[in-house]
């Protein structure tokens, strides 16, 4: 009976020690995994920042003006190519039904 009691006691203490060590080892393992994930996150953040910077460079007015002019052959509109559109349709001449009340753009023929 005494022998059994000792065996149980030793097994319990050993089990507790093993559990404690297991816990510690697992914390370290999770720590390594977390470190790896944080490194991955940092790399993705870095890539995101780099892409943002690239986007900002590509949308710079200087580049857009250059692309529009040199690649697409666009140029600023001339004076007769600009149409003034009243912001309030009721301001327009009500008798003139040939024109729509509000338009965003029209061809001037120039």
């Amino acid at each position: 009976m005494k022998w059994v009691l000792w065996t149980v006691l030793v097994a319990s203490v050993s089990g507790m020690l093993l559990f404690y060590v297991w816990g510690k080892v697992d914390v370290v393992r999770v720590g390594y995994e977390l470190d790896a994930l944080l490194k991955k996150k940092a790399a993705l953040t870095q890539e995101h920042e780099r892409l943002q910077a690239r986007l900002s460079q590509l949308t710079a007015p200087e580049r857009i003006a250059s692309e529009a002019g040199e690649t697409l052959g666009m140029k600023p509109p001339g004076a007769r190519q600009v149409v003034l559109v009243p912001s309030h349709p009721e301001d327009e001449n009500p008798g003139d039904e040939s024109e729509p009340p509000l338009r965003l753009a029209r061809q001037t023929g120039e």
């Binding site: 190519q81 559109v85 009243p86 301001d91």
Partner: peptide
């Protein structure tokens, strides 16, 4: 260029819209 960019019309509050062919 800036007045056109800001859609500032002369004399009234109407907008300026660049027409495109």
């Amino acid at each position: 260029q800036t007045l056109r960019y800001l859609s500032v019309a002369p004399g009234d509050e109407s907008r300026v819209v660049a027409a495109r062919s």
